[in-house]
Design a protein around this nucleic acid. Structure first.
Lengths: 241, 241
DNA sequence: TAGTGGTCTAGACCACGAT
DNA sequence: TCGTGGTCTAGACCACTAA
């Protein structure tokens, strides 16, 4: 592992265990460079990592400080995990299961070609899954993925974790996602599968997920029960490196 | 301006005007360093900026490539602007106005003390604003801010832009925001002010906004009409610097 | 094997804040 | 003025990919 990552991890540990307290300044780059027996450039790379993660901020002419409220900001760790939907989010706390109610291969409609940059003859998976948390209906996930990018998908993988398959088996790296939130009235499907009343609102989350190369590989629409938890995230300000 | 930022901007321009086409490799760090008459380290800092912004990705041993689908990813530029609510988001396209229906100073309740890290005697502003887009009701914004951090707020600023006041007049830097999305049924206020039917759903956005130092300075709850546009954002994957 | 990007160094100068 | 962080350099070695 690279030295600047090791140092960043060590500093993060010291922030978490209180060696460097919230609101207090760090020892200074020159001191840190001596302590870790390295150059100032390397220390700066470590610090910039922790700044990007929201642990630190610097004031030129003064010092580098530990941010307050790190717990409520950074403990969420909004990395790749955020794309796995609920399966990892709930890990340990609740039992998450899936019921695959549709798993077809077909040609994409125009909206899907548009979102996924596909031609009309590039086949896609059309997947409909009911997600349950602690045996209770939680959301309906409608997912479209091109078979050319994600070959070999089967029901076994759908019941386990699609993202582990993509990152592990296929060795693909996820670059980011575009996500939209909106609200709507319950549809027939929401009433039938989520057990909603016809007057219940639904939280709709629309996702387009991209690989590191910028290729879109997932277009999904999630209908979530309005009374089962919220969808939260930390949005950092424009980063400066 | 720093050299590495100038270079990053020039590279960004060349990506946008097609000099470096999507999916194609860049000239290579050694070449770029010669072209811009600088060192490789400086070029790498420029490149890391553009990687963080989602324009580029590198493959060790091979080259640095321009991402595909940059338009749909990065044109959104989700920086500080995203905190200004709708006022800047709609700028130019639609007319956004506010109607301040409550502007009080009082002591915070427990939930507000919790979210804003305040004591029970640290006074806060309690602001209720109806936001209109093109004269049509759009959302109800309920905002709580500590007067100790944002002194001198008045109705004139509320009708203009609170965020310009914070960043311009007060010289404070915004670090990020924690944002939650949920859906609910229309409340009495939603029916009265937004003109909702009692069966209309509402999109609820709860925000806690932090300064660069990690100090929270805004706790707000926004009730948004469900049929008036969506709330979207790009979420980059875990960045590596 | 040659060429690429990733890491690292030991200096240097500048911009800024505190005193 | 002094010490801090911010930028920059000209090299070096390593890890990796492609030919």
């Amino acid at each position: 592992m690279a030295k600047y990552i090791d140092i960043a991890n060590d500093l993060k540990r010291k922030i978490k265990d209180g060696t460097y307290a919230a609101g207090e300044p760090l020892p200074g780059q020159k001191n840190l460079a001596e302590d870790y027996k390295t150059s100032r450039m390397t220390i700066q790379k470590s610090l910039s990592l922790l700044k990007a993660e929201g642990y630190l901020y610097s004031q030129q002419g003064s010092a580098t400080f530990v941010k307050k409220n790190i717990d409520s900001l950074s403990n969420l760790d909004i990395g790749v995990d955020q794309y796995v939907g609920i399966s990892k989010l709930m890990e340990g706390k609740h039992k998450v299961t899936s019921k695959v109610s549709k798993f077809e291969i077909r040609y994409p409609v125009e909206a899907e070609c548009d979102k996924l940059s596909l031609g009309p003859t590039d086949a896609v998976y059309d997947i409909l899954r009911l997600r349950l948390v602690d045996e209770e209906p939680y959301s309906i996930e409608h997912t479209i993925m091109p078979i050319s990018i994600i070959p070999g998908l089967d029901e076994n993988i759908l019941n386990h974790s699609v993202y582990e398959y993509i990152q592990g088996e296929l060795g693909l790296e996820i670059g980011g996602a575009y996500r939209q939130f909106s609200a709507k009235k319950s549809s027939e499907a929401d009433i039938k599968y989520l057990g909603n009343e016809s007057t219940d609102p639904v939280l709709v989350i629309t996702n387009v997920v991209y690989l590191e190369s910028g290729t879109p590989f997932e277009y999904s629409i999630v209908d979530q029960k309005y009374d089962k938890g919220r969808f939260g995230m930390f949005i950092p300000s424009q980063a400066k490196y």
